[in-house]
Write a protein that binds this DNA or RNA. Sequence first.
DNA 1: TATACGTGGTA
DNA 2: TTACCAAGTAT
Length: 293
Amino acid sequence: MSIDVETLVGWFDVNARDLPWRHADRTPWGVLVSEIMLQQTPVARVLPVWQAWLDRWPKPSALASETPGEVVRAWGKLGYPRRALRLHAAATAIACEHGDEVPCDVDTLLGLPGIGAYTARAVAAFAFGRRVPVVDTNVRRVVARAVHGAGDAGPPSTKRDLDDASALLPDGPDEARAARFSAALMELGALVCTARTPRCADCPIAATCAWQKAGRPAYTGPAKPVQRYGGTDRHVRGLLLDVLRGTTGPVEKARLDLAWPKAGQRDACLASLLADGLVEQTADGRFALPGEH
DNA sequence: TATACGTGGTA
DNA sequence: TTACCAAGTAT
């Protein structure tokens, strides 16, 4: 079972969300920033931060000229702040080694920090209109249902997932058409073929959907690991970093000690933040965001 | 391949 | 309230 290109792209023409990184005046840099911010973070939370970043740093070299700490601060509460560090490093590499222009080919993009299999292809497709398969969680779910008739995607398998998506892409000389199809596939997963409560009544490809034909069987694969947050190291790291985001200069350790009562876990998390380069220690023993002392 | 990595909205 | 979920990457 395949997915009809005309039908899906036609649906996308009418139903695509009006997102700024899709506007005609978008830049590859803007697309790259959006893709990094959207990794595991919902669109609604990315929107205002993306806008502020593009106003403030319209080119990679502009971001590269900031301290990493200032970039981490501007990342705010988007989550996974190592992304901010890596985006700063990617901007530096683009400014210094690629003439301040975002690379357009997948292999070069893959060489940049924070850019993996999904983001490299997303940038190639959405910023440059290249015909490359783009596989994210939405695409995996839509393919699992519409093509394979399963209730949901199983564990990721890079090669198989890529081959599945590649087989769906329209052929022909119009590469931008293939890129638009990929965007439509993702949008369908985000708006209609959702994880929890799919809106099959509104689905443009329900008539050919293998999952529909099979009677919408429940997902039978392995259970997905549940992520806890309260009390975890991720939680504590977030609390510590939040203290530093809220101040301009270095702070005393006593200040950080207020953020979490368990000393052992707190110190281990501070050490891991140091190791990640998200925090630095000053000569006098205080702590600050990187480059801010 | 499995696990660590933030944060907040929704059911 | 707990649990799931959100355009992944690095190790």
